[in-house]
Design a protein around this nucleic acid. Structure first.
Lengths: 134, 134
DNA sequence: CCTATTTCGGTATTTTAGTACCAGAATTAT
DNA sequence: ATAATTCTGGTACTAAAATACCGAAATAGG
């Protein structure tokens, strides 16, 4: 199993949800609000934000008036950060076949997969939470 | 389910197997030979080549002395062709969320996903079966 | 013909990703 | 204290992708 890259609903919800959190800053935002706003499952959003919280990207508060807020400036949070937390994988990748048994001395893919990964890396890093707070 | 892109073992085996077929051209190559050469499951390879055959990329011959051969010059077959047959999906993609319920007027991803897709498209198209027959 | 070989096509199994659920712990306000 | 609210963490469920299997059909050679 060797995903070069994919954008799940979870990763996209995280980006959208966090952007809303950034917009509401410094107020806290809870998952019920986010679910309504994004027209998405609250259970799902809660799980996603749990992971974001655990990673340190955001802070969480329980109880009434509880919710989530960013743990650093919106300018310093990129979709790359979010992607790696939610998909919990690194983008860089190469041929999924076992190199030991491969009859080709030089990989057929050459640098293609690495180049693609690099492009993705750069692109994701340029998407910042602050893009929609101005 | 919205895979931006992924390279499965199947797609990679197809590329490797077809390159071997190209190298042996104009001789036919059977799946047993490919399985041994690539140190892979014959059943799996057979299934992959069945799909390649059905798509018209290669021709197949049953019975003793049977096997597979390219249906057009190696220079004209790219990994993009192979990828789209095996993964049976197009690379171009955008935000996996339902646009109707999205509160953001302008998509947060902007052109990022399209740009990445375009890059992948170009890169895969530049990988030709003939790369390893010279 | 008869047999050995090889692909074909359908299906079954396995694995993994993705999503949803629920009881429990923490917090706030009354 | 009590009740209401909200996150937490483990788990269960669903769906889909990826791989493996197997009987049937086709072909070539003796």
């Amino acid at each position: 199993m060797s995903h070069l890259i994919n954008v799940s609903e979870a990763a996209s919800l995280a980006l959208h949800g966090l952007t809303i959190v950034a917009q509401q800053s410094p107020n806290k935002v809870n998952s019920k609000y986010l679910a309504e706003k994004l027209d998405a499952s609250e259970a799902h959003l809660a799980k996603i934000f749990q992971r974001l919280s655990k990673s340190g990207l955001i802070r969480s508060f329980r109880g009434p008036t509880g919710g989530f807020m960013l743990n650093k400036p919106a300018e310093e949070i990129s979709f790359l950060d979010i992607y790696e937390i939610i998909e919990s994988k690194i983008i860089l990748n190469d041929c999924p076949l076992d190199k030991a048994g491969c009859p080709f001395e030089n990989c057929i893919f050459g640098d293609a997969l690495k180049n693609i990964s690099y492009n993705i890396y750069q692109t994701f890093e340029n998407i910042k939470l602050s893009d929609f707070t101005k």
